[in-house]
Design a protein around this nucleic acid. Sequence first.
DNA 1: TGAATCATGTAATAGGTTACATGATTCT
DNA 2: AGAATCATGTAACCTATTACATGATTCA
Lengths: 178, 178
Amino acid sequence: MKTLTPLNYALLGLLNRAPLTGYEVMQVFQTTPLGGYSSSPGAIYPALKKLRHAGLLTVSGNGASGRGDTLAVTAEGKAMLKAWLLEAPVEGAGVDLPGQMLKFTFTGDMLTKRQQLSFIDRLEKAIDSAISSLAASRDRIRSNLGTHDILAVEAGLLQYRAAADWCALARRELSKGK
Amino acid sequence: MKTLTPLNYALLGLLNRAPLTGYEVMQVFQTTPLGGYSSSPGAIYPALKKLRHAGLLTVSGNGASGRGDTLAVTAEGKAMLKAWLLEAPVEGAGVDLPGQMLKFTFTGDMLTKRQQLSFIDRLEKAIDSAISSLAASRDRIRSNLGTHDILAVEAGLLQYRAAADWCALARRELSKGK
DNA sequence: TGAATCATGTAATAGGTTACATGATTCT
DNA sequence: AGAATCATGTAACCTATTACATGATTCA
């Protein structure tokens, strides 16, 4: 069970907040923005089973609603989750913004304020470097490519700039609650 | 060969600009932002073969460089590509921004100015509706969820707003060249 | 001539989607 | 009792990733 998929981490993160039954997990994925991290029973149930067999989840008695076993994250599962949260974003190439946002959501449950702020700092650095590299590539092609290609690159730049703005916003919010 | 993957369309769109050998296609995918649409030989070569067998690509003699067969989009392939470009973005749920940008890049080669502008209009509408639905979900959870969840939704909103700004920018650029 | 890289692939593996199957339970 | 939906899955299929294989060609 070396590597976990984003979906696996999303499941661990969600269940780390509160134990849920498989069905409840599916509901959450189908009704919240979390659902970006797919999605269907054919993905979620096998993933939950795999995590159980890997010892990262355990069945923890009967849920409040009476039926269905609720699943909870084990100590080992929490350790995996935390390690993932502390991983630095991959430098170079593009930054996976949705993926980083998913991570960020769960940092509130597992990391200290200090660690959360450092998460933002590192994300901001990765975004800045992505911006530089995109801007460079835009300038490189400006002469020999068409309007459409340049506009597409421009779109990428705007996305990253918005993400950079978000970092500043998030830092303010986190410091406020300090 | 009913449904094509995003990668398939990316290949069609790229080869629609100019015939290339398989290797050259790979180079482009590995060195440009297009590479977001993966990527590896193990994906690209099989995909090219599939498109050939489906009659959407043909081998068109030897490339300028001497070696390797260059691939070109057939009339049928062009039709598929055009149909895809004219498809409306999926309403509801999230808008696949990178996917729409990929599409946009290719509209310059296949669609009239009028159609390109209408592409932007529809994209903008889809984005606006995504913004409304995200904003609503933010307000719905504001009271009973933590700072981190709200910030994550806020990030989504900033992304969409940046995309909306881009629509305005793109419209200006396209009208200018009119 | 040997090293690099050009050029095209295949095989093993893993993961997801769609669609279907199935038993239990609540609602009318 | 019958309909809906709760709740958990399985099976077929497809696609992508990683890693490896292979022959041809250019370059030092």
